[in-house]
Design a protein around this nucleic acid. Structure first.
Length: 467
DNA sequence: AAAAAAC
């Protein structure tokens, strides 16, 4: 199968050749003909499957077939997508495949000045790529009119369901004509999406899914059990390996991402963060520096979990595990693209074990654990339920017995003199960073204060603290 | 609970 077999016009084929694209991906082969034929299409596919080209190429070709007189100029195609970076990326694709066509493409999103976007729109635009917020803003200012669009694309529809989004999306759809060609792409098909498909699309062609598992199969995955407090050390330890040419590190929170970047920078690793609290300029700089290799590590929240295309990304590192198992699949799908190999490493602390379990269940395969690393997780020996002493009642502010015994209360495991003395007296004559197989008896949470036995006060109190 | 998205 070749793009030539898809009845594409010469200028598009030439543009594809420039990009060194000759063979359509499965989703392109399946979606391009029905889109060209004017059918509604629902595609269940993740990014990385070539989804953007699957709609961008036929949209360009269709719009190119008919021309609109200057006086009747209007927006003809709208692509709605959940993040600004994704909007930029889709816009780039349209520009690339449409190099030899006269169609004009424009991208709009928030966080940057409205003026240039406004001016570009006034000069006339055929294809508009947008995030929902700025689009609604410009519609209500009367700068954008969607009444005559011919093709509407809802990208990453399941993500659009997230809090607040679906409302914005419905407002946009309400501004579009009823009679138009609709394309909807979604990585998953929950009932809410099926409802939207029913309401919006007419007799849609369903494009078969590339099963999530087959994408996952190409990525070498592993998990490191590690205590929360040692995650940053473990990350720096792993990054010493030069075979990690580029790493996308995911954290659970925006602050967490900043903390990791600070720590890496102090240790002379070239790193930057990307998340929703960063200015748009900083976001774009971070991403382009990462893409061109100026920085080796990009630390991100789930803003980058989906869609972001980074060529030759060697490693995805889940510094924190996502609590929604599907997010794991999206995250690791940033690597192992375009036929290249990919590696996904996940850190799992004691609180994240349930998340790991649901991920394993979702991907229907085990994730091997790496045990010979310098920061193995402290193994808790949880006594059987009936053997557990009752939890101390907390009726007064006075410290309970458990708290009095708790090493954490006394030294915070960090910086008090008491803590250091204790460490000095009870620490094993340790090689604290030496690899320790997990099958051994419980080892210390940190290299310093550790005890030998599972029944030691530290272990017990650690258990009590967990409740 | 956190994340993204408009000023």
């Amino acid at each position: 199968m070749n793009f030539k077999d898809l009845k594409l016009i010469a200028p598009i084929l030439r543009a594809l050749e420039n990009q060194n694209y000759t063979e359509p991906t499965p989703i392109q082969a399946q979606a391009i003909p029905p889109v060209l034929a004017g059918r509604d299409v629902v595609g269940c596919a993740q990014t990385g499957t070539g989804k953007t080209a699957a709609f961008a190429i036929p949209i360009l070709q269709k719009l190119n077939e008919t021309s609109v007189p200057k006086q009747l100029q209007h927006i003809r195609a709208l692509i709605l997508t959940p993040t600004r970076e994704l909007a930029l990326q889709i816009h780039e694709s349209f520009e690339a495949y449409g190099t030899y066509l006269k169609l004009r493409c424009c991208v709009i999103f928030g966080g940057v000045s409205q003026k240039p976007q406004e001016e570009k729109l006034k000069r006339g635009v055929d294809i508009l790529v947008a995030t929902p917020g700025r689009l609604n803003d410009l519609i209500s200012q009367g700068i954008i009119n969607l009444k005559e669009i011919e093709i509407f694309v809802l990208d990453e529809a399941d993500r659009m369901l997230d809090m607040g989004f679906i409302h914005d999306v419905k407002r946009v759809i309400a501004q579009t004509p009823r009679k138009k060609q609709n394309l909807l792409f979604s990585a998953t098909m929950p009932p809410e999406i099926t409802d939207i498909v029913q309401a919006l699309l007419v007799d849609p062609v369903k494009v078969a899914v590339t099963p999530v598992s087959s994408t996952v199969d190409k990525i070498e995955q592993s998990v490191y059990f590690v205590d929360k407090a040692n995650k940053r050390e473990l990350l720096k330890y792993l990054l010493k390996d030069p075979s990690i040419t580029s790493a996308l590190v995911f954290t659970r929170t925006k602050h967490g991402a900043d903390r990791v970047v600070r720590d890496l920078t102090r240790a002379n690793f070239k790193a930057a963060a990307i998340h929703g609290d960063k200015s748009q300029g900083a976001r774009q700089t971070a991403l382009s520096n990462f893409k061109d290799g100026t920085i080796r590590v990009l630390v991100a929240t789930d803003i980058a979990a989906r869609g972001i295309d980074i060529d030759e990304l060697s490693h995805v590192i889940n510094f924190d595990l996502p609590n929604i198992p599907e997010t794991y699949v999206h995250r690791i799908g940033r690597t192992g693209r375009a036929g290249l190999s990919g590696t996904a490493i996940s850190f799992c602390d004691i609180e994240e074990k349930p998340y790991l379990m649901s991920i394993i269940k979702l991907i229907k395969r085990d994730i091997p654990a790496v045990t010979d690393h310098p920061y193995p997780m402290m193994v808790f020996e949880i006594p059987p339920k009936e053997a557990r002493p009752p939890r101390p009642a907390r009726t007064s502010k006075l410290p309970t017995q458990a708290e009095k015994n708790s090493p954490r209360k006394q030294d915070g495991l960090r910086n008090s003199k008491q803590g250091k003395n204790r460490a000095a007296s009870t620490a094993l004559p340790a090689e604290p960073r030496a690899p320790k197989p997990r099958s051994h008896k419980p080892s210390g949470k940190r290299p310093a204060p550790k005890t030998g036995s599972a029944n030691s006060p530290i272990t017990k109190n650690a258990y009590f603290r967990k409740g």
